[in-house]
């Protein structure tokens, strides 16, 4: 059971949870969005690690190399990256509107203003 082989997945786990912690614990809305994008980029790392083949090269045929890493996870992650950036862009637009409406982007201050 070579530790080195699984190291990538442990980094994935740590990254996932750092992002998740930022989302859960940090009241600042922008810090939450940063945590969210970290959370998603951890998943990208996990997918790409699936696709890696020992001794393989990037799946571009024709350069003489025979062993290729799997292209499928890479395609999925191309899509996921753009999904992540779209969500971040929308989140930031919301943060701007919240800043204009409430004058603050700290979650607890917003809740105070909302409490009836």
């Amino acid at each position: 059971m070579d530790i080195l082989g699984l190291y990538h997945y442990w980094v994935f786990a740590v990254l996932l949870m750092t992002g998740f912690y930022a989302i859960v614990a940090k009241p600042n809305l922008i810090k939450k969005l940063i945590g969210l994008s970290l959370f998603q980029s951890a998943v990208f790392l996990c997918y790409i690690t699936f696709g890696k083949l020992a001794g393989g090269t990037a799946p571009i045929v024709g350069k003489g190399a025979e062993l290729f890493s799997s292209p499928l996870p890479q395609v999925l992650i191309l899509t996921a990256i753009v999904v992540s950036i779209s969500t971040t862009a929308l989140g930031l637009a919301l943060v701007l509107r919240i800043k204009e409406a409430y004058g603050s982007i700290e979650e607890d201050e917003i809740q105070e203003q909302d409490a009836p």
Binding site: L16, F20, I23, L29, K32, L36, F39, Q40, V43, C46, A80, T87, L90, G91, L94, V95, R97, I98, A101, Y102, I110, Q111, D114
Partner: peptide
Amino acid sequence: ALSAVFKYLIMGTVGATFYLV
């Protein structure tokens, strides 16, 4: 609605990413 949607965005995206994992 804005603060409600922000909370929905965060929880929704976390849910979708859990599904992705």
